[in-house]
Design a protein around this nucleic acid. Sequence first.
DNA 1: TTGTAATATCGCAATATTACGATGTGTTGT
DNA 2: ACAACACATCGTAATATTGCGATATTACAA
Lengths: 110, 110
Amino acid sequence: MGATKTDLFTKQQNDIAIMAKALAHPARIAILQYLVKKNACVCGDLVDELGLAQATTSQHLKELKTAGLIQGTIEGASVCYCINPKVWKQYQQLFAGFFKEVDLNGPSCC
Amino acid sequence: MGATKTDLFTKQQNDIAIMAKALAHPARIAILQYLVKKNACVCGDLVDELGLAQATTSQHLKELKTAGLIQGTIEGASVCYCINPKVWKQYQQLFAGFFKEVDLNGPSCC
DNA sequence: TTGTAATATCGCAATATTACGATGTGTTGT
DNA sequence: ACAACACATCGTAATATTGCGATATTACAA
């Protein structure tokens, strides 16, 4: 027990859940918003920007990288991070599509 | 350790993370999609629809109710669930807003 | 009233996530 | 070569989530 039963659901349902999970932590939202605000490659800063330990920050960055939302480029001794626009757009469309399919003026409930 | 340090982040960042967390499980996505597809009040069906045990399904329903995304109405011996359009719209706008703020044609990375 | 169906809740085991110190790895300056 | 810096990774503790059997709870039907 304890593990999510992914085999019970469609690939699309699992995909949406995985994407949502990537966004399901305020530190990761903060990282993404910071990168978006700067709209450029950001080296270093991130550990100072969040209040978290360096190891923790690095872990969140790794998860965002695994999700494809950001990319890191080695720039000398440090690493530069930025949004991956292609994947960002995919997320945007997936969520927009998911939320669009409801008839908001339909019957509410019994 | 172990607990998310919510005090380090803004209310908005925590809110987005909480909303994303509500969507971060395929069973909950499946429930929402089923309710959207039916576009109406659904009694019972849900436990059969997912392959999960009744207790587990009930738990996911509770989380969606806590998130405000669905509402349940007692209808005799059973409970009818449906999307809460108002909150659904809030989620839609929040995520749309979050994803919109990026200049997709901007510089990618160093 | 007694039984049954539909849900909710409790309690627990398995697993996943979050956080951080310590340590490793590669880079830059001296 | 060596110290200092920037990150990544490892190991581990704390906490959260997932899943389910067992047990309430409530509504209805016989």
